[in-house]
Write a protein that binds this DNA or RNA. Structure first.
Lengths: 209, 209
DNA sequence: CGGTGTGAAGCCTTTCACAGCA
DNA sequence: TGCTGTGAAAGGCTTCACACCG
């Protein structure tokens, strides 16, 4: 099968499948069934097969999937066979944490710059990076061909910083600020609102059962 | 209308509406239409009205909604009129950032303990808290009636720490580790996987248009 | 025989469009 | 008149169930 409209939920699951396949590969497992993948992720096996079917036929009937082969397909599907350059804007606690976070320094992703407008933070070392002033943002994005901007500034500054990132040429924004951002339609935007997550837990705890 | 099965997407939007209403209230706005809320959040006005309709009739036809009144309803719906006690397990960069993050210290949420098993981190001060050893986890959860556990340990420790939290009596877990956690069905679980977010951006950048 | 790939069915969410009411 | 509240329609995602094939 081949398709252009892939559900977001499918993309999220695919990246989780890929994570599980890495674990299996490390264990030396060579073959896996959709049922086994499903069980380890907590979804149905039909879901796994449908998700994969958007992109091709990767399995062998009666057998299952070859782990390393499927992993290769998923890597390509998710675009992880190319490098993505990242700039983090906002070197507060959260931005600093992300800058040195290992999960953000995986194969395929490279943090190229950390920016802040607070003179006290500029010059600070974060792993192999140095916090640079806001004025450097546009040049850094252009020099390093930054594709992804991560916004970890306070809500009041979020839209302004986003506009700078967009004008400088990033293609995607990962927004950690509690603000609804306006971006042009051609920009890929994802929001990771930490306090919204707590509120969803609060709701579910209140209405449990 | 009244219902028991509320879509998760609705709950997420409700907490964003509540955030926008706070902004309006601070500006002194008294009345708002579903269209205005929708515009500020980036959804359709029918969506806003449907979301609210799960819980009651809060508006006035021909007029709209009274800002403070609707805010009161949303606060109650989301369970933010009660206090939720939080324990953060894992005082690495991310856990520490969350411990002092203002968005996590809003009305309704109180961080009661920060736990880590690394002796070098135990005793460290984080805002008004002190990092405590893993052995204290169960007691702290019980003493402070902790409802929500936040997991910010490495993947290898995530399931063990989760089991401890569940056994100690938390009702909900917010998981920041890149691991699929197994929890009993009565536990509310949410995953905030930072690297999955990057991978979703990667996918969308690769397949844009 | 066993597990994939996939139409079809079922379910859930969103959008439409308008009746109803202040 | 204007905007809410809501059935009905549309659209999208998940599950079912089985043909198909190694």
């Amino acid at each position: 099968m081949k398709a252009y409209k892939i559900p977001e939920a499918t993309v999220i699951r695919l990246s989780i499948y890929s994570r599980q396949l890495h674990l299996l590969k490390d264990e030396g497992v060579e073959t896996v069934s959709s049922e086994e993948i499903a069980e380890s992720v907590g979804v149905s096996s039909a879901q796994v097969r449908k998700d994969l079917a958007y992109f091709g036929e990767f399995g062998t009937r009666g057998v299952g999937y070859r782990v390393d082969e499927l992993l290769g397909h998923l890597t390509k599907i998710l675009g992880l066979d190319q490098q993505w350059n990242i700039a983090i804007v906002g070197a507060g606690k959260l931005g600093s944490a992300l800058a040195v976070y290992q999960g953000f320094r995986e194969r395929g992703f490279a943090i190229k710059a950390v920016i802040d407008n607070d003179p006290d933070r500029v010059g600070q070392r974060l792993a192999d990076l140095t916090v640079e002033p806001l004025e450097m943002l546009t040049n850094r994005v252009k020099d390093f061909r930054v594709n992804i901007g991560i916004v970890t500034v306070p809500a009041s500054a979020a839209q302004a910083v986003t506009d700078l990132l967009v004008d400088a040429g990033v293609g995607a924004i990962l927004n950690f600020s509690p603000r609804v951002l306006k971006v042009p339609a051609y920009i890929v935007l994802r929001n990771v609102d930490l306090s919204v997550n707590l509120k969803v837990l609060s709701f579910n705890l209140s209405y449990r059962r």
